[in-house]
Design a protein around this nucleic acid. Sequence first.
DNA 1: AGCACGCCGACT
DNA 2: GTCGGCGTGCTC
Length: 750
Amino acid sequence: MVRPIVEVAVNAPLLRNFHYEVPDELAQKVELGHRVLIPFGPRTITGVCVGFPSESEVPKLKPIRELLHPECRFDAHLLELTRWIATYYHVSWGEVLEAALPPPIRSRQREAVVAWIERARPAPELREGAQRMLKKAPSMAAALTFLATKDAPVPCAEVMRQGPCGRDAVTRVVRDGWAVETRAPRPAVAGGAGAPEAPPLPSDGKPLVLHPDQEKALTSISAAITSDAFRCILIQGVTGSGKTEVYLRALRQVLDAGKRGMVLVPEISLTPQTVLRFQQGLGVDSVSVLHSMLTVVERRRQWKAIQEGRAKLVIGARSSVFAPIQDLGLIVVDEEHDGSYKQESSPRYNARDVAVVRARMLGIPVLLGSATPTLESSWNASCGKYELVRLSRRATSHDLPTVQTVALGKEFYRPSGSGLITDTLDYRIRKTLRAKEQILLFLNRRGFSTYLHCLRCGFVLKCEDCDIALTFHRRDDSARCHYCGHNRGFPRECPDCQMPGLRRSGVGTERIATVLKERYPEASVLQLDRDTVTNYQVLREGLEQFALGKYNLLVGTQMIAKGHDFPNVTLVGIINADTGLHFPDFRAVERTFQLVTQVAGRAGRGERPGHVVVQTFCPEHYAIDYAARGEVDAFIQKELATRQPLGYPPYGRLVKIQLQSPDLEALKQEAERIAGLLRTAASGASERCRILGPAPSPVARIQGKHRYQILLKSKTHASLTHVLQALQGENSRGKRGVERQVDVDPQSML
DNA sequence: AGCACGCCGACT
DNA sequence: GTCGGCGTGCTC
């Protein structure tokens, strides 16, 4: 009898599938979408069954080893969705499927697959052997000495680390019969720690009467839901316009029709408050939350609830777009402009775009909401691909905050540091403090000073491994690299000319916090950035404490920019609005506009009117000016006009190819070789596809690796895909150990 | 990505 | 000769 054949998408960075034989004992069990354990070369890895071909060209097929957790199977729709991602983003289908798995399964299986080593002979024998080979094979001796101390299996990596020895030594020790390779011992199931309990919320018993704008928006959305077809609706609503209320009503309608909903939010906004808002608003407890803070046990419970259809609504960040929800009726992507929807490691996908594709595949509506929509989404709306719905007034009776732009000048950067806070801002701060109201100050840079330089020779202190100026942190008197985390004490004198005393320039949040404490001794200051916030717990508590009025002033970076409603904040200060404006990135201007608008939106969300002070060196720059005046549409028109002649998105599509190697010469050669391949492919294409570069990346070296990039630019995505075929057969490691990453629709050029 | 194989210098 | 460092190529 001919055994059945199965096509497997393997969890390896290879852009093709492999065929396997299904052994008799599994023949009745293995189905489409099942995850299986397979032999792959000399090792065993996982993969997902994606087809049952009737025959195979491959002469000698290996059999599948094992069927893994059959209860967790990808349905036809998720297979189709993940395959689309693999094709579109030029990544391995198997890796996308792996990323789409519930995290507990993903991680647990990884553990089981790594090799564990256990000694095969008594400890004294191992020590004796180690003694004998000490001279001839010191690393094997080290491995033996270490294994002699262990009675139980040890992960291979552990042996290498503790030995210390290389992988080869471990392999040899096994081959020579000193030890054996085993599977991981079954890990004890972690204790039944429940979900972190949500703190009681001040339930604002506001009567929820919809604003006329909201009513109008809802009418369109309602029609879309009823139409039972794919529609993409962009909700452009000013900060505080009550977008969430609109989502809630739309979801209500979907749930009432017996269908289920999905809400994607940026990682940072996924707080118990957000979840509670949906739970209370919809009056259902069957809300499933997918959060990186959940315990393994809790996550497994959530996933099961989703799969079994017990969860009516799923809320989560990026990877929740893969949640196996049946009868999905609506997808909501909140803050669609947020950069955290793009995964910045392989497989690189954008969850917002995947959400739209998922909705299209299912023939259901999807809502994209933002106060500052991306140019891509606005463009899609203006050319009719998406429907546009506006919420132009705040939901409460209060007006948008008044915004004042203050020009910074050279004179403000006096050594005393007093100039960080202009007289205008200082006046507002004092006034707000007197009124016993709260203040939020935003600066997108952490640390005390952002670079250290010598006043005599101009030397700027840089990281040894990265092409980046070191940031000075006063709390531990260190000079740190924000790219690789490398930390060194900061030198007392210039390393170049030995002049004592490096000048500390550029301002970070730590400096602001220090200055504030000195200037307003009666005020209490909270600083929230990656230096003070070690985990979500700390951030959540910090924000809660601030909301409860325990602090007068909150100073922070990105993480305080969005999502939170602080009713008592009447003053928002942006210390330097143009920190990101001059980055060599075509999205720098758009991001600056979004950031200023979002931060300004934190002001005046309660009863009292808000005021915003925007300090900037470029008050006339349109990003700052339009943001200050709240003119979103005008900004979008202007920025579109800037991008059109350059063919940047949304007028064209981009692919960034990032190449890295410690060896600069090898890197340059490889970059030229790749560019050559792509140019040849592009010259044969019907549509013009430009290959820009190779050129050194804006940050030319990170962690000791030099970086070059190649940019592909074309009118359509299809032609880029065509050109990228040239790399199809290539190993992702490239020649001479040069690493390569392909980034489709890159979020950042850096 | 892993992992083996194979070629080469260093050391016994 | 043996060990182990690294470049090259394959994985149904």
